[in-house]
Design a binder for these strands. Structure first.
Lengths: 234, 234
DNA sequence: CTACTTGACGAACGCTGTTCGTTACGATCA
DNA sequence: TGATCGTAACGAACAGCGTTCGTCAAGTAG
C-alpha cells in the first residue's frame, strides 16, 4: 500500500498548468466545440487533469470566460496611419473587432454580462475614444458613442457567428437546403395575413436575404458614424 | 391496494395546465427570480406539478423562453397619431420596447439566439418597417435599418435590466456604496498607465457615470435615426 | 532532517434539462 | 350501460453541470 501510486512518474512531464494555460485551452475549446459546449470539465480534460484543479487559477466559470474573451481581443490589430483618416481607421478597427469575435463562436456573449475591464478590451476602447475625439465628437458624448459602437460590435459578431455556425452545419450535413432559417422566415411571413402585415409582405424579398452579413454590418457602422457626425453627436 | 390514491379528489381542482398557463407562469417567474434562475423544475413547481409534465406543451427550454419573450412583447403598445410624426412615433415605439423588455430581467437574451418569429415580434417589426418607409428610408435599406434598431432595443434592454438588478440588490443590502461597478471601473482606469491610455484618463469622469441609462438609450436612438436620414440610409 | 506552504485532484453535493414507462382520466363506440 | 382507447400527467431515472471539501504529494525554508 505504500507504493500505491506511480502516477507522478509515469505521467511524462505533464502540463505545468498555469492561468495562461487554462485560458488558452479554453479559447481553443471555444473554437473547436463552440462557446456553449465549453465546460469546466472539458477544459480540465483538455489539460489532462480534473475540474477541481482549474479553481486554483480561476475563481469562476464566468471569470474564466472573461479572460478568454480578453485573450481573443488580443488578436485585434490597431489600425495605423496607412488605414486613412480617423473615420477610415475607426471603421477598420470596428470591422476587425467584429471579425475576430465572430471567429470564436458566441464568445461575444461574455461582453453582455457587463462592462469588460480586461487589458485588451481597454486597449480597444482607448483607441476608439481617441479616434472619436480626433473626429471632433464632443467629449461629453464620446463615452456614449463608444458604448454605441461596442453594442454594434457585439451584436454584429454574434449575428455573424450564428451565420457561420449555420453554414458549417450545412456543410457537414452536405445538404443543398441553402439556408433553412432564411426559408423559414420567408414562409412565416408568407403565411401572415396581408391585411395586417402589409409592409412585411411588401419587403419580404429584402428581409430574408441574410447572406451578406459583412455588407450589412459595414452599412450599419456607416449609419452610426453618420449619425454621430450629423445631429446630436457632434 | 385498490383504493390507493385519493389524490385526484383531494387535489382541489388543480390547474388545468395548458401551453398558455406554462408560458404565463414562466414569465411571472422571470420577473420574480430572474431569467437565469428560471428552470423547468421551478416552472413546474409554480404550477404544482412535475417537470416532465411541461414537455406536453413545450418541446424545449429554448422554445418555452421564446414563447415567454413573445408574451412579454405583447405589453408593448403601438404609438398612435397622438404621438406625433413618423420619427416621434418610431422613437416612442423603440423606447417602449426597451422599457418593457428591461422590465423582465435578462429576457431579451432570448432574441440573441436568432430571429424571433412570434406574433408580437412580427407585429413590432411590421410597425417599425412601416414607420421607416413613411420616413422615406429606401426600401432596400429598410430591413437593415430595422435590424439595427432591433440590436439597439435588445442591447439597451439588457443594459438597463442589469442596472435595475444592481440597484435592487443594493437596496436589499441597504448599503450606500452607490454603484460598486461604477467605482470599480473608475479605479481600474485610474490604475492604468497614463502614457498608454491618455484618452481613458481624460474622459474618466464621463465614462463612469452609468446612472442615466434612459437618457443614453434615447441619445443613441437619435444618433441612429440621424444616421439613417443623413448619409447612406436614405 | 524536519516543518510548513501550496498546487493537484478524487470524490462528492446539489442542481440542471430531458426521456422513459407507467398510470388514470375523459371521451368514444358497441 | 359497459368496454376501449388516446392521451395528459407524472414518478423515477440518466447523464451532465459548476463548485467545494479534504487529502495527498512535492517543493522550500529553517
Amino acid at each position: 500500500m505504500s507504493t500505491t501510486r506511480d502516477n507522478p512518474r509515469t505521467r511524462p512531464a505533464k502540463a505545468p498548468l498555469s492561468r495562461a494555460a487554462v485560458v488558452t485551452a479554453a479559447l481553443a475549446l471555444v473554437d473547436e466545440i463552440g462557446f456553449a459546449a465549453v465546460t469546466m470539465r472539458r477544459v480540465a480534460q483538455a489539460l489532462d487533469t480534473g475540474p477541481a484543479s482549474l479553481y486554483v487559477y480561476v475563481s469562476d466559470r464566468d471569470e474564466l470566460m472573461a479572460q478568454v474573451y480578453d485573450l481573443a481581443l488580443a488578436e485585434v490589430e490597431l489600425p495605423g496611419p496607412a488605414d486613412g483618416d480617423w473615420r477610415a481607421r475607426l471603421e477598420s478597427l470596428v470591422g476587425r473587432a467584429v471579425g475576430v469575435l465572430a471567429g470564436h463562436d458566441d464568445l461575444a456573449m461574455v461582453a453582455l454580462t457587463g462592462v469588460q475591464t480586461g487589458t485588451n478590451a481597454l486597449r480597444l476602447t482607448e483607441e476608439m475614444l481617441r479616434l472619436l475625439r480626433e473626429g471632433g465628437i464632443d467629449d461629453a458624448h464620446c463615452a456614449w458613442a463608444a458604448d454605441l459602437l461596442d453594442q454594434h460590435v457585439i451584436s454584429s459578431a454574434l449575428e455573424r457567428a450564428g451565420w457561420l455556425r449555420d453554414q458549417r452545419r450545412q456543410e457537414a450535413t452536405e445538404q443543398a437546403m441553402i439556408l433553412k432559417a432564411e426559408r423559414e422566415l420567408d414562409s412565416v411571413i408568407e403565411a401572415l395575413p396581408p391585411a395586417e402585415f402589409p409592409t412585411l409582405h411588401a419587403l419580404r424579398g429584402s428581409l430574408t436575404t441574410t447572406g451578406d452579413s459583412d455588407a450589412r454590418a459595414e452599412w450599419k457602422l456607416r449609419v452610426i458614424i453618420d449619425g454621430l457626425l450629423g445631429g446630436a453627436g457632434a
